[in-house]
Design a protein around this nucleic acid. Structure first.
Lengths: 146, 146
DNA sequence: TATTGTTATACTCTATAACTATA
DNA sequence: TATAGTTATAGAGTATAACAATA
């Protein structure tokens, strides 16, 4: 396939999808036995990023139904990584907040997961790393905030 | 965070991981109702790429245990996307092969999944697309073949 | 005896439907 | 009556252990 072909949006889409899939697959492979399940970990990172949220808002954000999020939140609470706080105005609602232990867990897990990728990136030239930094910005822009 | 900081392997690893995660999450969101479950689809693509394989080899490749792969392969066979063929030399083994319908399914699914990403890439400049093309190559190199 | 694949069984995560408490 | 969250129950997908067939 020619270079110019790969720069057209259609063919490039396949290239980007494959590249992203393979990197994430490798990152998953490098996942430690002690790591939290992914669906629990992403809730911790959401709480870290947006602050305390209701289970309903977390369910919407993660694209699961409320009963599933109830389970996930309960598991995180039992592990001591999150806690439920009553909403002050609306007593139907519950706010889920990150605990100090949860915050620490995020940091440790990220370090462990990124170890392999960091090593690989170290084998690239500074120019290649710059290309990846720019590409990361573009991809995040395309994908939107969440 | 400064530009130079992001170009160091450690911080860059986080950026790359986040960017890849978000793009794949959006792609999953855009997934059609008619699409095969991911674990079935990746088996079809493996058969497309490597040709007929045993269930055991597929299990190793996808990182699941043999009983799980038996289930997945059976589902694909019932859908008519794959078929089992007896091994000629070693009659303990079974070869799983892609059918013509399975081949067609791969093409259709890929087109559907990449539609959203293609549209997003169309909003970028040619230079930005070139950056993404180069980055895709780098990421595939880092991640290795599978 | 070792290997390949399957069956039996249990656990996890998800969903839909029904229920409780509050607005 | 509507909304937020939970509980009850069922459906996928995966794993471990035990089994059958073949080498």
């Amino acid at each position: 396939m020619s270079q110019s072909t790969k720069h057209r949006p259609g063919p490039l889409a396949g290239e980007v999808r494959i590249a992203a899939s393979r990197v994430l697959r490798r990152l998953r492979t490098e996942r430690g036995e002690a790591d939290l399940p992914e669906h629990q970990f992403v809730v911790l990172t959401a709480l870290h990023k947006f602050g305390p949220m209701t289970p309903g808002a977390l369910a919407d954000l993660e694209g699961v139904k409320p009963p599933s999020m109830t389970r996930t939140v309960n598991a995180l609470c039992e592990l001591g990584f999150a806690e439920k706080v009553g909403h002050e105005q609306d007593r139907r609602q519950v706010l889920v907040a990150l605990t100090e232990r949860g915050n620490e867990e995020i940091k440790v897990t990220r370090r462990r997961r990124d170890a392999w990728l960091t090593k690989q990136l170290g084998t690239l030239t500074p120019e290649e790393r710059q290309t990846l930094a720019q590409a990361s910005e573009l991809l995040k822009r395309i994908a939107g905030q969440p």
